[in-house]
Simulated scan of single mutants.
Amino acid sequence: MKRTGEVILGIVGAVFYSFLALMGVFAIWLKNNPQFLEEALAEAPDDLGVSTSDIIEGIGSGGTFILIAAIIAVILGIVAMVLLKGNKQPKIAGIIFIATALVFAVVTFGAGIFAGLFYVIAGIMCFARKPKTIIEE
Rank of each mutant, 00 (worst) to 15 (best):
K2C: 11
R3V: 13
R3L: 11
T4C: 04
I11E: 07
A14R: 01
A14L: 08
F16P: 00
Y17H: 12
L20E: 04
V25L: 12
F26M: 13
I28A: 12
K31L: 09
L37S: 10
E38Q: 10
E39N: 12
A40P: 00
A42W: 02
A44G: 00
D46H: 09
D47Y: 11
S51D: 14
T52E: 12
D54T: 15
I55S: 04
I55Q: 05
I56S: 01
E57F: 08
E57I: 12
T64F: 09
I68A: 13
A70C: 05
I71D: 02
I72N: 04
G77H: 01
I78Y: 05
V79L: 06
V79W: 01
L84F: 05
G86D: 07
K88V: 14
I92C: 08
I95K: 08
I96M: 04
I96F: 01
F97G: 03
A101I: 08
L102G: 14
T108N: 07
F109I: 15
G110R: 12
A111D: 09
A111P: 02
G112R: 05
F114R: 03
A122N: 06
M125C: 09
C126M: 06
C126Y: 03
A128R: 14
A128P: 00
R129Q: 12
K130L: 12
P131V: 10
I134Y: 02
